[in-house]
């Protein structure tokens, strides 16, 4: 069953249309990757899905429900969380406080869940009282993902989690993402790094605001033309 469905979405900023009739589908339990070069409209699409940017045409469905007009602050309640690419932590808050903010909507305490997150990202656990602004790029990325996981969402939107990280850290991040998926979280992974295909089930290629290709991750990985045209190989 598809958990997220985007139907012929048109959107953009002020006088500029960026997304032209975009459609895609994410099946429950999968990792679906959206690849494309800089400026393809990947972040714009994520912002539209999450309700930050209004759409001009088309529809977005989550678990069969129309969420086209739902504001972003209500998404976590529906079971979808989002990790932006940049500015994805609260710099003056500590690691602990950042995680607490991830569970802001919960009335009950969030301590047990926080311990689970610390288990998933042990590096964070050692520096609970450090301010997020003082963390390295890799730690910050893990904290950002940890914050989004605090509500135990059914679905996670990730915007280029590997950007700016060393190759070693990139491997670790993708491995963690795979682990999360095995634990039952559906993941929509936006990337420039074709390495994402190795952990994805399906993939879409976006360029110039248009969907250029879609298929199983394996097919896309093998397709030499796609590799040459869009993935810089």
């Amino acid at each position: 069953m598809s958990i997220l469905k985007v139907e012929k979405v048109v959107s953009g900023y002020e006088h500029m249309q960026i997304l032209h009739q975009i459609s895609l589908e994410v099946q429950e339990g999968q990792i679906v990757s959206l690849l494309g070069p800089n400026g393809a409209g990947k972040t714009t699409l994520l912002r539209v899905i999450f309700g930050i940017l209004p759409l001009r045409q088309g529809k977005v469905y989550f678990k069969g429900e129309d969420i086209s007009d739902i504001p972003p602050e209500r998404m976590p309640r529906l079971g979808m969380c989002y990790v932006p690419q940049e500015e994805n932590v609260f710099p003056s808050l500590t690691i602990q406080e950042n995680l607490e903010m991830g569970a802001f909507i919960l009335k009950a305490g969030c301590k047990p869940r926080m311990e689970e997150i610390y288990k998933l990202f042990p590096d964070l656990s050692n520096r609970r009282k450090s301010r997020a602004g003082e963390l390295s790029g890799g730690m910050r990325q893990m904290l950002a993902i940890g914050r989004a996981l605090m509500l135990n969402p059914q679905m996670l939107l990730l915007d280029e989690p590997s950007s700016g990280l060393s190759p070693l850290l990139v491997d670790i991040i993708f491995e963690r993402i795979k682990k999360l998926n095995e634990a039952g979280v559906t993941i929509f992974l936006v990337e420039q790094n074709a390495q994402a295909l190795q952990c994805a089930d399906r993939a879409y290629i976006l360029e110039g605001g248009e969907m250029k290709a879609e298929g199983s991750a394996r097919e896309i990985l093998k397709d030499e033309e796609i590799g040459r045209l869009y993935l810089g190989r």
Binding site: I52, E73, P84, F90, L93, E97, M101, I105
Partner: peptide, 23 residues
Amino acid sequence: KMGKALRALADNPELARISGINT
């Protein structure tokens, strides 16, 4: 909790919204 959310809002209003905080 409310105070921390206010600081979070001061830090990054959009991320606060994304986290489910009614800004």
